[in-house]
Design a protein around this nucleic acid. Sequence first.
DNA 1: GCGGTTAGTCGAAGCGGTTCGACGAACGTA
DNA 2: TACGTTCGTCGAACCGCTTCGACTAACCGC
Lengths: 369, 369
Amino acid sequence: MATMQDVARLAQVSVSTVSYVLTGARPISQATRDKVLAAMAELDYQPNAMARGLASRRSRIVGLLLPMDERGLGATETAFVTGAAAGASAAGYHLVLAPIGVGDRDELRRLASQRMFDGALLMEVQLRDPRVDVLRELDVPLVLIGRTADTTDLSYVDIDFDRTVAEAVGHLVDLGHRRIVYVNHSAGTIAEGYGPALRTRDAFTAAMAAHGLEPLMIPAEDSAAGGRTALATALRQAPDLTAILAMNESAVFGLLGELHRRGLRVPDDVSVISMVTSPQVAELATPALTAMNSPGTALGRIAIETLLRHVDGGHREIHQQLLPCALQVRGSSGPPRTAGTAYPGAGGRQRPGPGSRAARRSAATARRP
Amino acid sequence: MATMQDVARLAQVSVSTVSYVLTGARPISQATRDKVLAAMAELDYQPNAMARGLASRRSRIVGLLLPMDERGLGATETAFVTGAAAGASAAGYHLVLAPIGVGDRDELRRLASQRMFDGALLMEVQLRDPRVDVLRELDVPLVLIGRTADTTDLSYVDIDFDRTVAEAVGHLVDLGHRRIVYVNHSAGTIAEGYGPALRTRDAFTAAMAAHGLEPLMIPAEDSAAGGRTALATALRQAPDLTAILAMNESAVFGLLGELHRRGLRVPDDVSVISMVTSPQVAELATPALTAMNSPGTALGRIAIETLLRHVDGGHREIHQQLLPCALQVRGSSGPPRTAGTAYPGAGGRQRPGPGSRAARRSAATARRP
DNA sequence: GCGGTTAGTCGAAGCGGTTCGACGAACGTA
DNA sequence: TACGTTCGTCGAACCGCTTCGACTAACCGC
């Protein structure tokens, strides 16, 4: 394994000159540069990562902090991870997977104190996340995937839940649906302040209100059984429902199964839209699910780019960005069963505004007997 | 950030003594050790990872080499990654995700030459994998997930496809099935020598032969559409089939959809077993899929432990281990429609041996008219 | 033609650890 | 009692790179 010394000797220059050729920190004449590059090529030289890291105080490694509990990662999270890894790799950085949850405060402090990470990406961020405090205290640049409650001076990328929910609701309303139920994560998850569950809940309420419709949210455990139970509850509370919006990727399949068991056809009797879902998962259902495609890979890429800007630049400018999920219509959404006439205010994605009163009337007639 | 110097000063010993306390490379008296430990605690000392890495020529980082193409990771691969990360973390190592595919030979050489990795885990191993040569040449310890064609002197962990297929077939045969079709990955995938596809194919042939049954394999593209097509083909080639064994996690859902569309009920008309599948995915189907649970997490853990033994030990002893997928019966398998009587040789998992002739006779009577 | 820049290069001092040789003290042994 | 060991500790030499100060030579404006 050739070292810089070897290169310097072969090129008949000093080590520092070789270093400057590599880093560009000082000007080097073309002739010298060529000599050095030739020597490097001949020796198949690769700088030693540890030595470089020690001297420059830059490991070129960033940490991806993600809790790894029993249930593993979903498709969205996986896409995020691979997006981040690819982005890091493209920038000459390395991504280490650190299984650090919200509770592992001391573990994180230990890790970060070792100065192995130039920066960190936090996944599964809680509204109040102690990991943020630890990293700030140790002066480790960080970018959140998701958001804490207070995002002052914090860079983050997250899904634009407002727009995502609004578009999903808009799609259903355009199709003529009035009685739309939102199946969220579990009550416990909501209670402990899981951001996406709270934000989609509020966004759903707002979106429905904007159309003059009454929102109904049902919590569901993250499992097929949870989805079945949720459907039963939903039908009890809103027997006239014609569409379901599901946030819960695990529950939605149980929900579909239960719909089928009860003889309700999708989308003829009930339309179903799955939120924040990867195409791979959406395609598994029969019919394939109309879904809001989660921008997992893009989020990962943007997050890493933002982080590296902080790391490289010293660049204090914060970056906060929300990406909506794109609606992808597949087979699970269609006009409601009894909707003979189109919704008066429909035909576009514009807010109904003054038309909402009419909408409510029309909704009433559209309901099942 | 306290350094070793600070600790030495505070404890009134030399730096080397502090180092020996940490590494245990030389004996240190209890009194001195206590002084040093106290000083470390007081200063909240954490050794600098880069410095340690440079001096010891050990980064305490292992690379996980995985191709990251467009299609991302499946649930099994994800479980593997998280298992490996957790295992590494528990041993005080770090896992970096390196998006390096079979083709990125030079990229891997560059990376490995930087001496950032003490060892590497290779995923998605091809029967003939150039990454192995590169790493060996550079003297980087490695462990495969999967197997190359020639595994001499190579440590690996992999799924025991023979046992997995045998158990799946055994389960179906025990239930009374005779006409079992195996839905594999695509013809292209098989042609390019994808190990799991080849090994399961051969295992299926062997397992069926052991029961005196005739094997039928159908290739399928990795998609819902592929599954639908495969079912059509299967029904054409074997109209009397009563059970399907599917290797292809993506196709199996399309296959189920197509069964449903044709009015064939699962498991009453056709039993379906999904091979190498995670419980999360199996639960998505309705009915939930009887499946061979992939031991993803365990594989990851064992792989990393093996690798670290090579790294730490210098320990040249190779370790080759196969883990079977465990059968988990859910709702998609049951007795065949027309199976009034149990298969004479059934009731256990033992090989039928001389009974195979009887089995064949019985199989004929068990077929649909 | 002279002080002041700027480009181009070198030597040396780190970065924060590990590890080796050396050395005094304590110990068992012949 | 003298000697070879083992124990416990220290100092110093690295590990392979970055970076700072210094120096030379060419170049600038006036």
